[in-house]
Amino acid sequence: MTTIRHHLSDELLGAYAAGDLPEAFGLVVAVHLSMCDECRARSMTLETLGGAVLDTGEAVPMGEGALGAAMARLDALMQEPKAAPKRRTGVPAPLAEYIGGDLDAVRWKSVGKGVKQAILPTDRLASARLLRIPGGVAVPDHGHKGLELTLVLQGAFSDGTGRFGLCICLAATEAPLRFKGLMPRLAQPFFRI
């Protein structure tokens, strides 16, 4: 894995903790947290604060018989057994889940100049894609004007002045027509490409 050069903003982590991020941005955050202990610790603190908000918030009484219904329901609910540890792949678990394995499982499609991409299945508020950019190729302009959050998974990435190697990165991009409001103010990309 590459060195973490940028940390996630508190704003982005806050939205992730609150469950407000489109799935594609949530995926980039989850992959980053899998690789960055510092951001994970901040993220856990923000979840703890969410727990405190829930616990100290207003308790609205449940309907009559709610406890009885819940207890009756337990009979039909099996308690799940302790899960076996998941098989590790070469990529962080949240990403492996979306590509169905490690990077070898990715079905790349060429987008020209040797650059390949694979769109990952997420909700339509934003889109997530893997990009594979060969060494020596100038950074492609994929003509996107909205917010973008990009995480380098493998290789080096430089914005133009020299060193280029094969670079594989994960990028979430806003779907401008579908999502307004919060995201433009969360803009803190790792790299803009």
Binding site: V29, K86, P92, P94, L125
Partner: peptide, 18 residues
Amino acid sequence: RNRRIDALRKSRRPEPED
């Protein structure tokens, strides 16, 4: 929170590695 994302947005929240 995850139940809310599922109920209101029909979406999900990717989780970091265990």
